[in-house]
Deep mutational scan, measured.
Amino acid sequence: MIINNLKLIREKKKISQSELAALLESSRQTINGIEKNKYNPSLQLALKIAYYLNTPLEDIFQWQ
């Protein structure tokens, strides 16, 4: 199971779900699903999230 700190990191950087979704060329619903652990992002999307949040991938997503 993958757990994530996306919501915590996103809020700390003062970025809304909609703003992050626009940067990622994704939907706000996708970001919401990832944050609620209802959806696991593809590797490509996970890497883009890490890039746009300027945060190491392993700080956002962790195996448990």
Score class of each variant (00 low, 15 high):
residue 60 I to D: 01
residue 23 L to A: 15
residue 10 R to C: 13
residue 7 K to G: 07
residue 7 K to D: 04
residue 64 Q to N: 13
residue 35 E to S: 03
residue 12 K to I: 09
residue 47 L to Q: 12
residue 19 E to Y: 11
residue 30 T to A: 09
residue 44 Q to G: 12
residue 42 S to A: 05
residue 36 K to D: 13
residue 64 Q to G: 14
residue 54 N to P: 01
residue 23 L to M: 14
residue 2 I to C: 14
residue 9 I to H: 06
residue 53 L to R: 00
residue 15 I to M: 14
residue 53 L to A: 00
residue 22 A to C: 13
residue 12 K to E: 12
residue 19 E to P: 01
residue 45 L to K: 01
residue 42 S to Y: 05
residue 40 N to H: 12
residue 40 N to T: 15
residue 31 I to G: 01
residue 52 Y to E: 07
residue 57 L to R: 01
residue 63 W to K: 03
residue 62 Q to F: 07
residue 6 L to Y: 00
residue 58 E to T: 10
residue 26 S to V: 15
residue 6 L to S: 02
residue 49 I to G: 00
residue 10 R to D: 03
residue 25 E to K: 15
residue 52 Y to N: 05
residue 13 K to E: 06
residue 59 D to T: 07
residue 19 E to D: 12
residue 59 D to R: 07
residue 61 F to Q: 00
residue 31 I to C: 04
residue 30 T to N: 06
residue 45 L to F: 13
residue 15 I to G: 01
residue 18 S to P: 05
residue 18 S to Y: 11
residue 32 N to I: 14
residue 32 N to V: 13
residue 9 I to D: 01
residue 3 I to V: 14
residue 23 L to V: 11
residue 49 I to R: 00
residue 28 R to A: 14
residue 45 L to S: 01
residue 36 K to N: 15
residue 12 K to Q: 14
residue 22 A to H: 13
residue 58 E to S: 12
residue 59 D to H: 11
residue 5 N to E: 02
residue 16 S to P: 05
residue 52 Y to D: 00
residue 11 E to F: 06
residue 14 K to W: 06
residue 53 L to S: 00
residue 42 S to H: 06
residue 10 R to S: 04
residue 43 L to E: 06
residue 3 I to Q: 07
residue 63 W to V: 04
residue 10 R to M: 08
residue 47 L to I: 13
residue 64 Q to C: 11
residue 57 L to T: 03
residue 5 N to Q: 04
residue 18 S to G: 12
residue 64 Q to Y: 11
residue 11 E to G: 06
residue 16 S to M: 05
residue 63 W to E: 02
residue 22 A to P: 02
residue 31 I to M: 03
residue 28 R to K: 13
residue 35 E to L: 04
residue 28 R to C: 11
residue 46 A to N: 01
residue 26 S to Q: 12
residue 45 L to P: 00
residue 10 R to H: 03
residue 50 A to G: 03
residue 32 N to E: 15
residue 26 S to W: 06
residue 53 L to P: 00
residue 17 Q to T: 08
residue 58 E to L: 09
residue 55 T to N: 01
residue 41 P to F: 04
residue 23 L to T: 06
residue 60 I to W: 03
residue 24 L to F: 01
residue 14 K to F: 09
residue 14 K to V: 05
residue 41 P to I: 09
residue 33 G to M: 15
